[in-house]
């Protein structure tokens, strides 16, 4: 069993809104001093799902795939420390500025190069652009079935059983392998690497591939290969003015709030 996990590195989504800034001229999010980028938490749950499958089956090779700059190595290392076997980093100026389509095309080319494989695991949506389309496009490029927003992923007798999260419940879906699955937070907590595993991860191999290594034309990936153009990026303003209800005691404040809401006909 060979499982490929696609992991992205993103600005920390827990960055306080007050520190979040964009440069409107370059249409880029500005790095916040002291807050390092992190591995996409949903994609890390994909790695967790892969490790659970390995534990259930007794064996599986897990490869981590990440498209991003040199510094995205930290995200790959995190997945390796969790227990993945090896990493592939797609780093090339040609990959930069790509939309989901261009990125998915590059990832799919790398996955093809990693054949044979049985399962590709992704996160439901990367918490930077919040798009959630890369897994479906990878599947379509490779001609594979795709199941999105999984809360449980199991493999038995060569078939894949996935429980998916719907807005009002859950659905179970079965499909053949190879397949692409995207994972949601309902899968549960990812394991936390111990120091020993972090040390061991430093010795695991990480290959760096360029567009030429993938045999893709530079015009097909990155900004050049994108179909969606980003014309503007800005921070919206919230202008609500909060009226704080001050009182001697919490009871009094609570009662004033109730009366105020009643007068405003809100309750």
């Amino acid at each position: 069993m060979h499982i490929i996990c696609c992991v992205k590195q993103v600005p920390d989504p827990e960055t306080p809104a007050s520190q979040f800034k964009v440069d409107e001229a370059t249409k880029k999010v500005l790095p916040v001093p002291g807050i390092d980028p992190v591995a996409d938490e949903y994609a890390i749950l994909g790695v967790e799902a892969a490790l659970r499958i390995r534990e259930a089956l007794g064996e599986a090779k897990i490869t981590v795939l990440c498209l991003g700059p040199e510094a995205a190595r930290d995200a790959v290392k995190k997945a390796l420390a969790m227990g993945a076997d090896e990493g592939i980093q797609l780093t090339d100026g040609a990959f930069e500025g790509g939309d989901s389509y261009a990125t998915a095309r590059a990832l799919a080319a790398a996955i093809k190069k990693l054949e044979p494989f049985d399962l590709v695991l992704c996160g439901r949506q990367a918490p930077d652009w919040d798009v959630g389309v890369t897994p479906s496009i990878i599947a379509d490029v490779l001609g594979l079935p795709c199941v999105t927003r999984a809360s449980e992923v199991k493999v038995s007798d060569g078939t894949l059983q996935v429980e998916r999260v719907l807005l009002d419940g859950f659905e179970t879906v079965e499909t053949s392998l190879p397949a692409v699955v995207s994972v949601s937070n309902e899968l549960g907590e990812p394991r936390y690497p111990q120091l020993r595993e972090i040390m061991a991860a430093a010795k695991k191999p990480v290959a760096v591939w360029s567009a030429a290594d993938l045999g893709v034309d530079a015009s097909q990936v990155g900004a050049a290969g994108s179909l969606l153009s980003l014309d503007r990026l800005y921070v919206p303003v919230h202008e609500a003015k909060c009226e704080f209800i001050e009182a001697e005691t919490p009871e009094e404040a609570a009662e004033t709030l109730a009366t105020t809401l009643r007068e405003a006909k809100l309750i």
């Binding site: 964009v22 930077d128 652009w129 969606l228 153009s229 800005y234």
Partner: peptide, 14 residues
Amino acid sequence: PCYGGNANAQHTCK
């Protein structure tokens, strides 16, 4: 909206 609602992006399709 993107970046968890911290930013808005405006797109056109090529």
